[in-house]
């Protein structure tokens, strides 16, 4: 009996996460590239500091902040009322910092002849009313619909802005990260997906939405409507190392990283 108990304790201790990081950030895979790059540069300037960055989605990051598992939550959507309520009940006072702006980019395989799409057509594709590329001016073939999963802030923003609250079709492929969506669309000729601006690459073709191509100018000016701010959430106003890191992201060096990773600076 003692042996079993001992083994259980050892296995459990071995499983426990032991990052030993000075600062842990968890959440949105859209925000992830900015923070990853910023953390690398910050740690290069301050070798004594250890920063861990994890994805998982905005919902996971916010839950981790409430549970005290991370210091900063990364989110590509604002916190919901029930999340704020849960946080406050548990003694967490969520404090929001906008670090960048992003556009939701609608992407297809580079071989797809389509160049533009309307919000209404997108809605019809994602809710299952349109199934063939022929119906949207393409060369035919089944549309392979790629979406983010429900823990994703990108998904929630897309659902609100494009689907107007309607449900994604049942046969859509729900993927856990922007990277997974980008890779799948790049490898699937009939696919359509949506990603954060920072994940756009030559392996993907961005579509104009309602006649506007997403880029720094159209997103900043508001002409491209599928745009959103990107957030960091802390418990109370940032203090200590969290404050130093967030100040760095908002500094000219940090905002340069924002731009280099494909997003739009806010300062």
């Amino acid at each position: 009996m003692k042996g079993i108990l001992g083994l259980t304790i050892i296995l459990t201790l071995a499983w426990l996460p032991t990052t030993g990081a000075d600062l842990t950030l968890t959440g949105s895979t859209t925000v992830f590239p900015i923070i990853q790059a910023a953390a690398e540069e910050f740690m290069a300037k301050h070798p004594e500091v250890d920063i861990t960055v994890r994805g998982g989605g905005s919902g996971v990051g916010i839950a981790a902040l409430i549970d005290g598992i991370c210091d900063i939550a990364m989110a590509s959507r604002p916190m919901k009322t029930k999340e704020i309520k849960r946080a406050r009940a548990d003694g967490i006072n969520p404090c929001e910092t906008v670090i960048a702006r992003d556009g939701l980019v609608i992407v297809v395989h580079p071989a797809n002849p389509i160049t533009s799409i309307s919000t209404e057509t997108l809605r019809e594709i994602y809710t299952g009313k349109i199934n063939s590329w022929k119906d949207v001016g393409g060369e035919g073939g089944t549309i392979v619909v790629i979406s983010r999963d429900v823990a994703s802030g990108t998904f929630e923003v897309f659902k609100k802005m494009v689907l107007k609250g309607k449900r994604v079709r049942a046969d859509a492929l729900m993927l856990a990260s922007n990277k997974a969506v980008a890779q799948t669309v790049a490898q699937t000729p009939g696919a359509i997906g949506y990603i954060g601006l920072g994940y756009l690459s030559p392996h993907l073709k961005a579509l104009k939405v309602d006649g506007v191509m997403p880029d720094a100018e159209t997103i900043s000016s508001g002409k491209y409507r599928l745009a959103r701010p990107l957030f960091l959430y802390t418990n109370g106003k940032p203090r200590g190392l969290a404050k130093r890191f967030i100040d760095f992201i908002l500094s000219p060096s940090g905002q340069k990283i924002v731009k280099e990773t494909g997003y739009l600076p806010v300062r």
Partner: peptide, 9 residues
């Protein structure tokens, strides 16, 4: 329901 701004339910 929830009271706005997370002030309760």
């Amino acid at each position: 329901g929830n009271i706005p701004k997370g002030y309760g339910e």
